[in-house]
């Protein structure tokens, strides 16, 4: 049975069971997203993939596609809502792009460019968060964590290690590491883990390298993420 939804007026075929995001990705239409990665169960936490359905905003990654559904995505109203969401992600952490090795190849930054963010607009929280450099191969800068839980899902569902979890509620939510000391170096985390490869920001970074690509040649320097695609979808990965 062929089923179709309408995305910004364009008919998009899908198979029952797919989400709006699945259908859009399969049709090659970009809906901005940060916590979504097709390799893992949808999470719906970043809210960047908001689309309009029946006059309401829903997250495309967790909403099932339905036959005859009318979905709005690329409208100024929705882009402006997404922009506010991304701005809130920026002010909640400490995202100092000029001092981050991921800059230029960062999905958070690329999505912010895509939604037209010129400044974070809201008052900066300037939270106090640590950097964990205890692991020999990888470091974690909690200042850059947006709680997308991709590392949590990759470690649990692919690596079968459960190295990461999110603890706390609301503003106190934060990433924790399963080790006696709470440090990455004392956990079962390994550089070969999938969890090491899925971070959409500069929060989980390999050590002993950095700023390898010159400005102008980085992933999102010349073309937007809607054309280039996700960081993790690149040939060879990161």
């Amino acid at each position: 049975m062929s089923t179709t939804l309408s995305l910004d007026g364009r008919p998009i075929p899908f198979t029952p069971g797919q989400t709006i995001m699945d259908a859009a990705l399969a049709a090659g239409i970009y809906i901005p997203h940060l916590c979504h990665n097709p390799d893992y169960a949808p999470h719906g936490s970043c809210r960047v993939c908001m689309v309009g359905v029946g006059g309401r905003l829903v997250s495309a990654c967790t909403t099932a596609a339905l036959d005859g559904m009318t979905v709005e995505s690329n409208t100024e109203t929705i882009q402006s809502t997404r922009r506010s969401i991304v701005q809130m992600l920026f002010v909640e952490g400490n995202h100092v792009c000029p001092a981050c090795e991921r800059s230029g190849s960062c999905q958070l930054q690329a999505v912010a460019y895509y939604v037209g963010m010129l400044s974070p607009h809201f008052p900066q929280f300037f939270p106090q968060r640590p950097v964990d450099a205890s692991h020999p191969d990888f470091m974690i800068d909690f200042n850059r964590c947006i709680l997308c839980e991709l590392c949590v899902r990759a470690s649990r569902d692919h690596d079968h290690k459960r190295v990461f979890a999110v603890s706390g509620r609301g503003l106190a939510s934060h990433l924790v590491i399963d080790s006696p000391s709470g440090l990455l170096g004392d956990s079962h985390f390994a550089a070969s883990d999938r969890a090491a490869q899925v971070c959409p920001t500069g929060a989980i970074l390999p050590k002993h390298r950095g700023y390898e690509q010159p400005i102008g040649q980085r992933l999102y320097d010349q073309a937007p993420i809607s054309v280039v695609g996700d960081l993790r979808a690149q040939p060879g990965g990161e």
Binding site: N94, C97, P98, A99, S119, P120, Q124, F126
Partner: peptide
């Protein structure tokens, strides 16, 4: 007009805010 990262969000100098 706020010109540049430091005027826009504090930039690198604001790393001392922690």
């Amino acid at each position: 007009v706020a010109v540049g990262a430091c005027a826009v969000n504090g930039g690198v100098p604001a790393m001392r805010n922690a």
